[in-house]
Nucleic acid binder design. Structure first.
Length: 416
DNA sequence: CCGTTACCCACC
DNA sequence: GTGGGTAACG
């Protein structure tokens, strides 16, 4: 029932920043009542297929615990399942990537970036589930973070059974209900689009249902005994091991998935770390700071312009351009202080944030990034598992079993 | 290949 | 009217 702890500096991972900057829309962010100024101020929860993961963070420690649905695991099972959660945390937050080292590289190459590194540290790309990622970002078109969050929560609570309930840590009288993300077979059913319409999905309702049906029809919905993922979900995961161009081509076949949404998925769940999703907002950053010609008036995002912007950012940031982009993107996302994402059952705390109100953190100052520097060796030089190593070193003895498993998982993992 | 426009909804 | 976009048209 208690939390395990991992030694992870906030410079490597900032939960507060990462979990609400528009990558994942499903985390519950719950304020804690605390007097400890150095301790965690919030609890973050995510419902997985078979468990709920709860996280807290202090300046140098990540705390985690797992809650299981009712047939509680027996004591021997428990150690195993908790080890799975640790492996999941390691994978989801990509803790083998040394973010500080990446920041160093970007700051050397890009003076614009250098000005933000201190105020926006710990922002990294999550390694999300591809299916959830596709659906979430179909929802993102013409939309803002707070509404996307509500839509995704509604989707889960209406199409997925309750896995378990958990009390509010600050207010034990109240409790939250958790639902896993619904699989493709469920969302592929014909009447789903109608229901989604009622739930306020607008024209995205048909996109989601069609995409689910397309995936189920073309790649199946059966599950293997040792893998609860449906066949089409596994197929999506398989795109991790093909080229960026090939994976993108497949994603673009899905209704409601255009270039921008495809690139978000490539970056955030398919391991394509160099991909920079370009939206009108990123375009503005490019004009303001990276010497892109700003089409006077309204310029539409043509495929050609998209490619030019993508190339520009890649030339500035290199191999991990997509990761760097998320830092700059977050820096410019001022709607940052006042979101309160709560579980589906709780009343939405309505602290609407004027979305348009980007604090132009990114002030002018032209292009003081290096003039198209040659591609650096990049973070490839990063010593693998730097963070992971320290994590393991500080794990309690009882978790020693995990070491072998994690190492093995990393070796067999299909990250390119 | 490039440029328009409609589309759901929330916000200004 | 506008928009962290896409599909369908000319």
């Amino acid at each position: 029932m208690s939390f395990h702890s991992l030694h992870i500096p906030q410079l490597q991972l900032s939960l507060a920043a990462v979990l609400k900057c528009g990558q994942s829309f499903r985390w519950s962010i719950i304020p804690l009542r605390t007097n400890d100024y150095n301790g965690p101020t919030h609890e973050y929860r995510l419902c997985l297929r078979d468990r709920v993961v709860c996280l807290r963070q202090s300046s140098d420690t990540l705390f985690y615990r797992t809650v299981y649905p009712d047939p509680q695991p027996t004591s021997p099972q428990l150690a195993l399942r908790d080890a799975e959660t640790l492996a999941w945390v390691d994978d989801y937050f990509q803790l083998d990537i040394d973010l500080v080292k990446l920041y160093d590289q970007w700051a050397i190459r890009d003076k614009v970036f250098a000005r933000f590194r201190d105020r926006f540290s710990g922002i990294r790309i999550l390694r999300q589930d591809p299916w959830e990622n596709v659906v979430s970002f179909i929802c993102s078109s013409n939309n803002n973070i707070s509404r996307i969050t509500k839509m995704v929560q509604n989707l889960c609570s209406h199409f997925s059974p309750t896995l378990l309930s958990l009390p509010d840590p600050a207010n034990p009288d109240q409790s939250f209900t958790y639902h896993p993300f619904p699989p493709p077979s469920i969302l592929s059913l014909a009447d789903v689009s109608t229901t989604l319409r009622t739930l306020g999905f607008g024209y995205r309702a048909e996109f989601i249902q069609k995409t689910a049906k397309f995936l189920v029809d073309s790649h199946g919905s059966d599950t293997l005994l040792d893998n609860p993922c449906e066949a089409s979900e596994q197929w999506l995961q398989g795109l991790r091991s093909v080229s960026t161009a090939e994976a993108r081509e497949e994603l673009l076949k899905l209704t409601g998935v255009g270039r921008k949404v495809a690139d978000c998925v490539l970056l955030m769940s398919l391991d394509k770390k160099e991909v920079v999703p370009v939206d009108t907002h990123v375009y503005q950053i490019a004009i303001k700071h990276y010497g892109m010609k700003g089409g006077s008036g309204k310029t539409t995002m043509t495929p050609k312009l998209y490619d030019e912007l993508h190339a520009r950012f890649f030339s500035v940031w290199g191999e991990y351009a997509g990761w760097a982009h998320s830092v700059m993107f977050t820096a410019d996302l001022k709607a940052f202080a006042d979101y309160n994402i709560t579980p589906s059952s709780s009343p939405q705390k309505k602290t609407s944030t004027p979305k348009r109100k980007r604090e132009s953190e990114l002030k002018e100052e032209g292009k003081d990034c290096l003039p198209t520097p040659p591609l650096t060796p990049g973070p490839g030089a990063i010593s693998k598992a730097v963070i992971g190593a320290s994590v393991l070193a500080l794990e309690p003895e009882t978790e020693n079993m995990t070491l072998a498993e994690r190492v093995k998982r990393r070796r067999t993992g299909k990250r390119t």
